[in-house]
Amino acid sequence: MVLDVWKQIKKQQFAPIYVLYGKESFLINETKQLLISNILGEEESDFNLSTYDLEETPIEVAIEDAETFPFMGEKRLIFLNNPGFLTAEKTKDKVEHNLSRLEAYLQEPAPYSIIVFSGLYEKLDERKKLTKELKRKGAIVEAKKLDEQELKVWIRERAALNSVQIDEDAVELMLTLAGANLFMLTTEVDKLALYVDAGKSIDVHTVDKLVSRSLEQNIFSLVDKIIHRKIDEALRIYYDLLKKNEEPIKILSIISGQFRLIYQVKELARRGYGQQQIAGYLKIHPFRIKLAAGQANLFSDEELTRIMKMLADADFQLKTGGLNKEMIVEMFLFRLQKNKA
Rank of each mutant, 00 (worst) to 15 (best):
L177M: 10
W154D: 12
L336Y: 15
A170W: 09
N38E: 12
I231C: 00
D203K: 07
P83V: 06
K209Y: 11
E133R: 15
V329K: 00
Q13Y: 08
K129F: 11
I9A: 00
S100F: 10
L304D: 04
L34E: 08
K7W: 04
L291Y: 12
F26R: 01
L252Q: 08
M184K: 15
D169I: 09
K230G: 05
F79T: 01
Y52R: 03
I284D: 09
R288P: 03
D46R: 13
S113Y: 01
Q149C: 05
K340A: 14
D169G: 00
N82A: 07
K128W: 01
L27T: 02
K23H: 11
Q264A: 13
Q276N: 13
S100N: 15
G22D: 03
R158E: 14
L298G: 11
F69R: 14
L151T: 09
K244N: 15
E55F: 10
I202R: 14
T186G: 10
L177W: 04
N218V: 06
S256K: 06
V189F: 11
I226A: 03
F79I: 01
T186L: 03
L182C: 00
I114A: 00
T176A: 12
S212F: 07
L146Q: 11
E326T: 10
M310F: 10
R76E: 03
K23F: 05
A312R: 06
G199L: 12
G199W: 14
S300F: 11
G280C: 12
L124W: 08
E326G: 05
M184R: 15
Q295W: 07
V204E: 10
A279G: 12
L252G: 05
L241H: 10
A110W: 02
H97Q: 08
N297I: 07
P83W: 05
M184G: 09
Q149F: 11
